[in-house]
Amino acid sequence: MNTAYWTLAGLLALFYLYAGTLKVIRSRDQLRPMMAWVDHIPLPALKALGAVEILGATGLILPPLTGTAPSLAPAAAIGFVLLQTGAIGVHLMSEDRRITLNAGLILTAAVTTWLATQL
């Protein structure tokens, strides 16, 4: 269980750290080729979303690693399930039907949530 958690949590953390950093430091024009939905939300919300992703990635790794507030790890994973559920809604409202990645991230975050409760 421990190895499975660290594998999935590590992959999720890397993904969200990368995606969140891009949202925080890049302009809307730079993000548009890889994220067609960026025109549908205000720029401050986009930057805040990036910051939340970075904090969530940190929440998956640091609490179990340090043993401080370990309940933050499942909370972060649940947060990613909710975030991707909202992302699917944004994609579908903007008539973007490419939600396979979002569905995969929901599944991965859900399994990570369960694994985090087993630590």
Rank of each mutant, 00 (worst) to 15 (best):
P44M: 10
L31W: 04
I78L: 15
R98H: 08
L83V: 05
T3I: 13
E53P: 04
D39V: 02
L60E: 05
T7D: 05
P63T: 02
R98G: 03
L119T: 06
P64I: 11
A45C: 02
N102L: 04
P42W: 07
T113K: 01
I41P: 04
I41R: 11
L82Y: 14
H91N: 14
T7C: 10
Y16K: 01
P44W: 01
A110F: 15
L60A: 08
A57K: 09
A75Q: 08
T85C: 13
T108I: 06
G67K: 10
I41N: 06
V52T: 10
L17G: 07
H40I: 07
L46N: 08
A45E: 06
G50Q: 14
M93Q: 11
H40S: 05
L31H: 10
Q118K: 08
I78N: 07
T112M: 03
M34Q: 01
L14G: 12
I54H: 03
I78V: 15
M35Q: 14
D29C: 12
R32M: 04
A87F: 06
G20R: 02
L22V: 02
T117G: 09
E53V: 12
W114C: 04
R26I: 09
L82C: 14
R98W: 11
M34S: 11
H91W: 12
T85P: 00
K23R: 10
L92S: 06
W37D: 10
A110V: 10
L107I: 14
A75R: 04
T66Y: 01
G20V: 03
V38Q: 07
L115E: 01
R98M: 00
A109Y: 00
L83G: 03
I25S: 07
M1H: 14
T68Y: 11
L119F: 09
F80C: 08
D29T: 06
T100G: 02
R97E: 02
M1C: 13
L115D: 09
I99A: 05
L105K: 01
R26Y: 02
A57R: 00
F80R: 09
G86K: 04
L107C: 02
P74M: 08
I78E: 00
L119A: 13
H91D: 03
Q118C: 02
